[in-house]
Design a protein around this nucleic acid. Sequence first.
DNA 1: ACACTGAAAATTGTATACAAAATCGCATGC
DNA 2: GCATGCGATTTTGTATACAATTTTCAGTGT
Lengths: 233, 233
Amino acid sequence: MSKQPKNTLRDSVYTSLKAMIVTGQIPPGSRVTESDIAAKLNVSRTPVREAFNRLERDGLVTGRPRQGYVVTEFDINMFREAFAIRELLDGHATELAAAAATDKDKARLRAMLAECERLAAIPDRTTKEKFQELEVGIDLHRVIAEISGNAMLHGMLCGILDKCQHYVWTELLWLDEWKIARDEHAEIVEAICAGDAARAGALARAHVRGSRENVLRLLQAKSDYQSFLAKAS
Amino acid sequence: MSKQPKNTLRDSVYTSLKAMIVTGQIPPGSRVTESDIAAKLNVSRTPVREAFNRLERDGLVTGRPRQGYVVTEFDINMFREAFAIRELLDGHATELAAAAATDKDKARLRAMLAECERLAAIPDRTTKEKFQELEVGIDLHRVIAEISGNAMLHGMLCGILDKCQHYVWTELLWLDEWKIARDEHAEIVEAICAGDAARAGALARAHVRGSRENVLRLLQAKSDYQSFLAKAS
DNA sequence: ACACTGAAAATTGTATACAAAATCGCATGC
DNA sequence: GCATGCGATTTTGTATACAATTTTCAGTGT
């Protein structure tokens, strides 16, 4: 497809599939067959199978023995679970990052903030640009986890953030009220740059809690809207 | 081989391989080839490949593009990383478990404690029995995570515990000083049964920190012993 | 003795062929 | 009309064949 050719087909397929799933091109609940994907990407089933294995391990698809794969449908319960863990891991990672960040790291974080700002300032944004802002905002957390120096923590947090991104993108981004908490991100970066671990950690935890509440509120609104539609018809 | 026949060969191979790795039958740092394992288990390379994929995702083996797989060697740094995360996740899981445990759950935990006690009381234990005690002690944490009701937390903690088990088993269990902190486990279970979430969480966090210090002390002793051997020869 | 070349061996990456199992549809019997 | 059973189709699970690449090691030249 129009993807950068990776070293191995397996990685290429994995990346493509993951992008398609996270962005909702393949909506949650869809049944996906190895043959279809293989045909669509012009490869054999083998690399597709291995990609599916990894995606299943990531929790983005669920596969039952001889029954094929289905793009995971996240319910509100999984969302709560993910955010409870994020609060722990993100908080700790941010504390560590504040203690470990080099000047180069700090510059990198500031550049991401600026990029986020730039994307937010575009008038009449397309869906793609909205997604880019969301992605940069989440990437900020990934980079903070990387800076923390704890590779295992970084890996686990990336996995959770993928799921959160998937959930927000497929369920909520259509809402106009959606908005990245840019000020909170800026405060966190500021605390990291100041080397204030305690403050950075507290801000990060509060930010995760705030995001959770924000999303839950939007989910409620969506649910209300849908039941309104149902009653009206 | 002498494993219970699972539904799919892939799962069977995964289970067998994981057991062989975690118990050190295949020592860390060994090169493992698909063909060897396939021959040893009398299956084709395909299920072995998929098992390797999952094990790589688990972090138990590391594989480079066309270079084969190597059983991951955990260094002391990874160990510290794992325990930092365990402190967060185990603490939270134990808090949740204290709030959520049913009578059946409590009975299950008490039964595991009793089993641990029984294994510890065996005189002149074999290596296998030592490993069983370790396994039950770690399983206790897995079950607590399960009881917490947060499936994602449970899954992540299981992954980390596998690595810790692997590390302890391959690096430290030969030491006679090794000893499961049975009293601490008992205290944690007690707090869970009493429904005291704050106390249970605090105990769990302290227990993880204590385990970490214990292991680090043993590693130091091992290192001292090895340098003593080197100087003597 | 050492470095470099190049072919052979070993090993993974990919494709494909075949087997087993599940699902779907249809017909048949009650 | 509905349930049930049987067969055809679809889809995954496994094995194997082939391609690509890396490593190894022997041989040669300096």
